[in-house]
Write a protein that binds this DNA or RNA. Sequence first.
DNA 1: CTGTTAGCGCATTCAG
DNA 2: CTGAATGCGCTAACAG
Lengths: 345, 345
Amino acid sequence: MNSKVNPNIRLEDLARALKLSIATVSRAISDSPRVKPETKKRVKAMAEKMGYRPNQIAKSLSSGKTNVIGVIIPRYDEPFFIEVCRGIDHIARKYNYRIVISSSRNSYKFEKENTFAFEKGVVDGVIMSFTHHTKTFTHVDEMISRGLPVVLFDNVSSKIKGAAHVIIDDYESAFQATDLLIKENNKSIGYISGTVMKTVFNKRFDGFKEAHIRNNQVYDEKHILNCKSIHQEHEYREVYNFLNKLEHMPNAFFCSTDNYAMLTIKALIKLGYKVPRDVKVMGFGNLHYSSMFTPELSSVSQPSFYMGEVSAEILISKIEKDYYFEDGKDEVILPTKIVQRETTR
Amino acid sequence: MNSKVNPNIRLEDLARALKLSIATVSRAISDSPRVKPETKKRVKAMAEKMGYRPNQIAKSLSSGKTNVIGVIIPRYDEPFFIEVCRGIDHIARKYNYRIVISSSRNSYKFEKENTFAFEKGVVDGVIMSFTHHTKTFTHVDEMISRGLPVVLFDNVSSKIKGAAHVIIDDYESAFQATDLLIKENNKSIGYISGTVMKTVFNKRFDGFKEAHIRNNQVYDEKHILNCKSIHQEHEYREVYNFLNKLEHMPNAFFCSTDNYAMLTIKALIKLGYKVPRDVKVMGFGNLHYSSMFTPELSSVSQPSFYMGEVSAEILISKIEKDYYFEDGKDEVILPTKIVQRETTR
DNA sequence: CTGTTAGCGCATTCAG
DNA sequence: CTGAATGCGCTAACAG
């Protein structure tokens, strides 16, 4: 039963106060052309006066539209995702949508739960990024088969039919970054990465290799580290130990994330090296605190905010016009940019 | 008009397939004791088989309960708030609630909009933190008067009747931090802060002063800076210029946020000082990247995650049991902790 | 233990 | 231009 909830004004209350029917009031509120301007004015004035606020739930149930976009991200505590959410939010507001953010807390199980929660006319569409553990996609297929528009961003390993994809070119970006390091006369370059975001990391590593090939430079397998740890502190130990055991320290490191870059720099400093004087470091991601780091971090800049904006635009297009892209494509690749700060100077 | 939306199974479909009434099916699904175990089994099996998923919207409209908690934060891109959200989410899930996060993008106008959006039986309760511009609280009063439970956390300048408050003791925390700096033999201590979060900053400054008084130490007005700028880079310039013009550099700085601490350190380094060798720095907030900073930042640790957890517990208590605290209080003060890392060693 | 009935608040036919 | 009637899918009295 509706026990305590709304001591709220409903259309019916307005209707009674105005001696009009509910239907007319409803139409007046939603600015239907089928109602006399004067009546509209009266209704709106009264609505204002009585403090009427439409009940979104009832509205949704009746119209089948919620004006809510569901967002599923692997985790809250990664600035990249937050930036994307901000971008989504920005566009969503423009089109009068609200967003609901759910974290899968880096677990496939929760990710699935989240998609289930979104399946129901609770949202008009979903924007999501997979956890690193997500290998099967039936949960996404199910949303799509129920007619929910779905936009996938970042970390999209394989395409999913019926969804749109917003990504960056990891391979190309890593290539550019490495190429730049080589062109700036770094004769030996190491690579520090991890094992978690496998698909993405592989592409970045491929770009790293390709840049060496095209420049006729070789890299030393001993200068490659793929951290197995997960937690910040363990990762740090691993990086530290790796660097500590190196016979020859390379001139530069390309790191597959800004996080690894910071860990690397921290370890290098601990080991008595100066960055960038002795060793240069390039990160990937350009997190918002990269520039607050000392020394300021050079990094491949992913357009995170923009990525959110684009994702939202595409999703809303699908919701309202039934297509993701005018030209029928199902993917957009966003450009990256290398931001050179202190660590590669 | 319910145009395309759900090609979905409803209770009615199950009822027909099972030759039962809708009511019984509904009860079976929600595990009511008033239905034969065997029937329950049949219903659940069929529900599973047909892929039934309850329509949350309809459920909410009918029951007046949404199991959604609305969260309003000033901004997404501040790790502190994200941590709080994670804490909220953690507890919310435990009690089978979902959370909806809205950012007021640091604007009072948007904050108000957000509270309006939440007013409607769209959420069962609201957890929020004010922007720095929020001086009037009618929007909150309105939510409360409509019967919405409200929990306010952080940055709570004055108490609001009918809401619960989850805060830290800014005064005491700043006192402790300064006291520690004094006890560790820093003969002159500067204070770097801003003007935006006035109420909070004032309390922290009061703590700073009190520690001096109690230790019979004086501070130099010339060593106090309250940044007027807002944007990161302008703030940095302001800090830099301030430090640059100082005749005597203090032994240590207490900064009212980690952000100011990092800016301060960055500027100090630029000016040729070593941290902590020449100057020590203490921050406030203990953001998650404080430990990744080089040198690692000492800071007053706000229990952000825990603050979220506590807020959620209190809110859900109010929602389900109609009281925030068993003892009728309306406020809880969470303890802080000074985390000493490299910058004060 | 199960079925019948009546809303939740709104949008939207269909009649005037 | 306005009103009366119907239903979105579900829950919860009220009856049996």
